[in-house]
């Protein structure tokens, strides 16, 4: 049976290369259009919500709480509200990406992060530029220019990313630190294969699960003889992974 190599899975992922500390290359998976759009959707709800709350608050204060405000006080209240809405509208993405090291609430939910092409958190200018050029990216319609630019870019950069020199990457939660080690005979492709089996076995149907386990065990016994304990394939794989049976 042909072995699905972990590389075949990795090919579906587009990665960005960064020159990390000690000049070691750092490969980080790029965010997909879908998760970026969803993150944007959440952020837009927050922006609209905040503006709605501001308008409602101003209305309540000026007509219910203090309906007999003088012209000057009324003007000042409205001026404050105009200023607050302006700041939310133009400053939301900029402020969050600057203060939360390249994340907004929406990006945090989906595990996305803006980094510069050097892999650093965006500073004042990159955060300012990428979020101003957003106004060009959203045109025409819904992110017309932005989607096109992302499709044409090897690093999935929208126009604002290109101009600012930033990339949006995906931060997967790191695997749990169980301190487990694999026996000497096992090479990387097989380790990755067993790890994926362990992660995904619960999603297989009861009929299918033993079939996959048998095929996997047969493959391991052929590639690395003597590594897998004898007996039932599923229990043998669990024992290999250091699980108490």
């Amino acid at each position: 049976m042909p072995t699905p190599s972990p590389a075949a899975h990795a090919d579906l992922e587009r990665q960005a290369e960064f020159l990390g500390s000690l000049d070691v290359r750092l490969d980080l998976p790029l965010a997909h259009v879908g998760s970026r759009a969803m993150a944007q959707w959440i952020d837009l709800w927050i922006v609209w919500g905040a503006m709605l709350v501001l308008v409602a608050l101003t209305w309540t204060v000026t007509t219910v709480v203090a309906p007999d405000l003088g012209d000057r006080a009324m003007g000042a209240a409205l001026a404050l509200s105009v200023l607050a809405i302006f700041l939310v509208q133009w400053g939301y993405f900029f402020a969050f990406e600057l203060l939360w090291q390249g994340q907004t609430p929406g990006k945090r939910v989906f595990g996305l992060r803006v980094v510069t092409v050097e892999g650093h958190p965006p500073g004042v200018l990159p955060a300012m530029i990428r979020n101003m050029v957003r106004l060009v990216d959203v045109m025409p319609g819904v992110y017309g220019i932005g989607s096109l630019a992302m499709m044409l870019s090897p690093r999935a950069q929208r126009l604002g990313d290109r101009v600012a020199g930033t990339v949006v990457i995906r931060e997967d939660p790191p695997p749990p630190d169980d301190g487990h080690t694999w026996p000497a005979g096992l090479q990387a492709p097989e380790i990755a294969l067993v790890e994926r089996w362990l992660r995904r076995r619960h999603t297989l149907t009861p009929d299918h699960r033993p079939v996959v386990a048998r095929a996997l065990a047969a493959h391991l016994r052929a590639v690395a003889p003597g590594v897998l304990p004898d007996g039932d394939p599923e229990q043998a794989l669990a024992a290999l992974a250091g699980e108490a049976t």
């Binding site: 972990p6 590389a7 899975h9 990795a10 960064f18 990390g20 500390s21 070691v24 750092l26 490969d27 980080l28 600057l98 090291q101 980094v115 050097e118 892999g119 650093h120 958190p121 500073g123 004042v124 931060e171 997967d172 790191p174 695997p175 630190d177 990387a188 492709p189 380790i191 990755a192 790890e195």
Partner: peptide, 28 residues
């Protein structure tokens, strides 16, 4: 040596976290 394994993923995430933290980024 161990591409595609959990060990690589864990080290990458640690290396990236360190790279971000130690980056020279002067606060405004």
């Amino acid at each position: 040596r161990y591409p595609g394994t959990a060990t690589e993923a864990r080290l990458r995430s640690l290396a990236f976290a360190g790279h971000r933290l130690l980056a020279d980024r002067r606060a405004p």
